[in-house]
Nucleic acid binder design. Structure first.
Lengths: 198, 198
DNA sequence: TATGAAGTTGACCAGTCGGTTAATTTGAAA
DNA sequence: TTTCAAATTAACCGACTGGTCAACTTCATA
């Protein structure tokens, strides 16, 4: 009952893009509405606040990304290859974004986290949860790799955190230097950290 | 000739603290002036813009930090120990900030970089330059360690970048989870990356 | 085809944003 | 003790901030 609308989705899409390309602070409700072709009154019909839209946008993005990750981290694929492919996937995505925006945008979760985590708890909690889920992909791949003896035998959780922190640092540097090439370093870097044999 | 003033320094100090505790976007000129006990008119007497104050504040902070780094990375200290001490120094600083703000604040260069690098080139260039200088401390320590055979023999520049990206990722996670304990992971993490022998 | 729930609209709000200005006060150096 | 460059001040600017609201339009369903 009542009429249907795509405005909510348009707002979510606009929010993700604007945050990614700029920052949370540089993204105003007016900008979002312009980009989505939605009037401000409608914005607040669908979302309680700017923060709530950001939460919805980030969660939506993560839900989408998870579908890819579930394929990339399929147990059928050799474990080390899963991690490498995951970052190759990042690189490709960043390349497409670069063609569109003329800039390397890095990881929005990470950039948003750095910006808002001392200021907006609601958003911070959302980002925390997503990163906690993400790292589990690395963790289980590392455990599988250790079981088959293809990498060094350290605590899997610890190794996953190292690779994860490293990958986020790399993504940030790629954003800061607007340089896709930085992302190519991951392959050799991850192999060094994981002590890949052969 | 003319009168003297400490307003400029007070503004710089206030800016660093506010950016570190929050973000660039959450730090308004009015907040800075309040904190520094300076009227807005004086602000614009000393600085062209908010961006220029940020640049001055970041550069001032880096100049101070370099003094510590020059001691920490003294060639007299065993090379691997230099890198470890550098992060121990971070940890201690973060502990003091935690006592003051009740929050882990992480690396301001890094957080600022994530926030503004697509939006404010002037600031981005300043941050780039500082990070480029920073990594050289790691690089030369790594080269010394390799010369004395205490770590693995990979390309020193590449290793430095890995350790550096890793440390920034760690600092971010400590900020996001408001958890000083994350920083303790650096010691074992760095040893794994560098392949410390013994 | 009537209905009312859901979506849309534009005008409006008080507060804040970064930044400007001209008048005034200060105190270091001559 | 005078001088005047430098520092301070408060009032002001227009644009924009996140958010509200009541009137209005639409269209899926019954």
């Amino acid at each position: 009952m009542g009429r249907t609308s795509t405005a909510k989705d348009r707002l979510i899409d606009a929010m993700i893009e604007l945050i990614w390309a700029g920052s949370y602070g540089s993204t105003s409700v007016d900008h979002i509405c312009d980009k989505a072709g939605v009037k401000k009154g409608s914005f607040y019909h669908f979302f309680e606040s700017k923060t709530e839209l950001a939460v919805a946008a980030i969660e939506h993005g993560w839900t989408e990304h998870r579908k890819e990750l579930d394929q990339i981290f399929s147990p059928v694929v050799p474990p080390v290859e899963r991690i490498l492919n995951c970052f190759r996937n990042f690189r490709q995505e960043q390349e497409e974004l670069f063609q569109k925006h003329g800039r390397v945008l890095g990881c929005p979760i990470h950039s948003l986290g750095a910006e808002v985590s001392t200021v907006d708890e609601r958003l911070r909690d959302t980002l925390q949860e997503i990163l906690s889920q993400f790292i589990r992909y690395y963790e289980s791949a590392i455990r599988d790799a250790q079981a088959q003896g293809s990498i060094v035998t350290h605590d899997a959780m610890a190794l996953a955190r190292i690779v994860f922190a490293y990958s986020e640092g790399l993504l940030l540097h790629a954003r800061m230097w607007n340089d896709l090439g930085r992302l190519d370093e991951f392959e050799s870097g991850a192999k060094i950290i994981l002590g890949v044999k052969g």
